[in-house]
Design a binder for these strands. Structure first.
Lengths: 185, 185
DNA sequence: ACCTGAACACCGTTCAAGT
DNA sequence: ACCTGAACACCGTTCAAGT
C-alpha cells in the first residue's frame, strides 16, 4: 500500500481532528500511515509544506462553494461564510492556517486566479484582492477565537458568535466602495 | 541579578524580534537571561503562559492608545489601527497571538473591562463585545498575512496594504448598525 | 523509486538537589 | 525563595543503507 501526497494530507486532517495541532507531528502521522517518519519526506518537503497543502485545501474548498453568485457583494458574503465554515469543520485549522500562511503555488498566476471571480462580477483586480483579503482576515480572525477553547467559552457566554460574525461581515461588505479614493497613481 | 516576570517578557520579545517565533524557545530565552531553562518555571507556569502574557501586552497597549475618542465609531477605528500597529512592531507577534489566544485573567470581570469604553460611548454591552471582536479579527487577520514573508511579498506586489486594511476597517465600522435585528429574545 | 535505521541537534517539562 | 543538574519523553530533519 504505497503512500501518496493526498493520502498523507487526508491522514494529517484526521490526526489533527483527533489530537489537535499540538499532536500533529510527523512521527505520529507516519505511525498512522504504517510507515516510518522519514518516508513522508519522499512526498512533502517538510512540515511547513504539509501545513501549506492543508491550508490550500481549506480555502480552495471554500472558493468552490460560492460559484455562481449574482454580484460581487453576494460573492464576498458567500466566500466569508464558506471560509469560516471550512475552518470550523477541522479542529485547530485556523491556527494551522495562521502558522502556514498558505501561498501554495507560484505567485505570478495565483493573483489572477483569486481575483478572477470578482473581476468577472465587475471589480477591478486591485479591489478584488483587497476586499477578498479583508474578508478572509475577518473570517480567519473569528475562527481563531472560536477555536481557542477558553476564548470560545468566554465569548459564547455573552454573545451569539454566528450573529456577530455575520454582522461584521455584512457591515464590511455593504460598506465597500469601489473606485472611491483611488490611492496614488 | 534576580529574575522577574516582566523582565522575562521583555527578553522574550527581544528574542522574538531577533529569531522569530521558531527561535523563541525557553532554553534560548533562559540563555539570554543568563540562567538555566527550569529557572523560568518559577515565574511562569509554562510556555503557553508566556505566550498569553506577551499577547496581553500587545492588546492592552493598543487599548491604552485609543482613550478619549469622541464616539464609538472613532474608538473602534483607533482600536483597529492600534491593534494592527502593535502587531507590526514585533516580528511574528500576530502568529504568537493566534497561538496563544489571549484571555489572560479570569473571565468574569474582563468582559466588563473590554466593553467599558464602548458602553460609555453609548453601545450595549453585547454590541460592544461583538464589534470589538470583529475589529480585532480583521486587524489580526491582516497582520498575520503581513507577517508571513511570502504572503507579504505577494500582496505588496499588487496593492497598498495600509490602504486595504484601512478600507476594510472603515467599511465595517461605518456599516455597524446597533440595535438592528436584535436576535432571539 | 520508495522506505528503514540510526543518528543529530534540538525541544518542553519534571524534580530532586543545592544555596 | 530561587536556581541548577540531570533526566524523560518527545520533536523535525538528514542520510546512508536496504529493497
Amino acid at each position: 500500500m504505497k503512500l501518496n501526497k493526498e493520502g498523507i494530507v487526508d491522514a494529517a486532517f484526521a490526526l489533527l481532528d483527533e489530537e489537535g495541532i499540538e499532536g500533529l507531528s510527523l512521527r505520529r502521522l507516519a505511525a498512522r500511515l504504517g510507515v516510518q517518519a522519514p518516508a513522508i519526506y519522499w512526498y512533502i518537503p517538510n512540515k511547513a509544506g504539509l501545513f501549506r497543502r492543508m491550508s490550500a485545501r481549506l480555502t480552495t474548498g471554500a472558493r468552490a462553494s460560492c460559484a455562481g453568485q449574482p454580484d460581487w457583494r453576494s460573492w464576498l458574503m458567500a466566500y466569508g461564510r464558506g471560509v469560516r465554515a471550512a475552518f470550523l469543520t477541522h479542529r485547530d485549522s485556523a491556527k494551522l492556517y495562521a502558522n502556514a500562511g498558505s501561498i501554495p503555488e507560484d505567485p505570478g498566476e495565483i493573483g489572477d486566479l483569486i481575483a478572477a471571480p470578482l473581476v468577472a462580477l465587475g471589480l477591478s483586480r486591485e479591489d478584488a484582492i483587497s476586499y477578498q483579503g479583508s474578508v478572509i482576515s475577518l473570517s480567519l480572525g473569528w475562527a481563531l477565537f472560536e477555536q481557542t477553547p477558553p476564548m470560545r467559552d468566554f465569548l459564547t457566554g455573552m454573545m451569539d458568535m454566528d450573529k456577530s460574525f455575520e454582522d461584521g461581515l455584512e457591515a464590511m461588505v455593504r460598506g465597500f466602495a469601489p473606485g472611491s479614493a483611488p490611492h496614488a497613481s
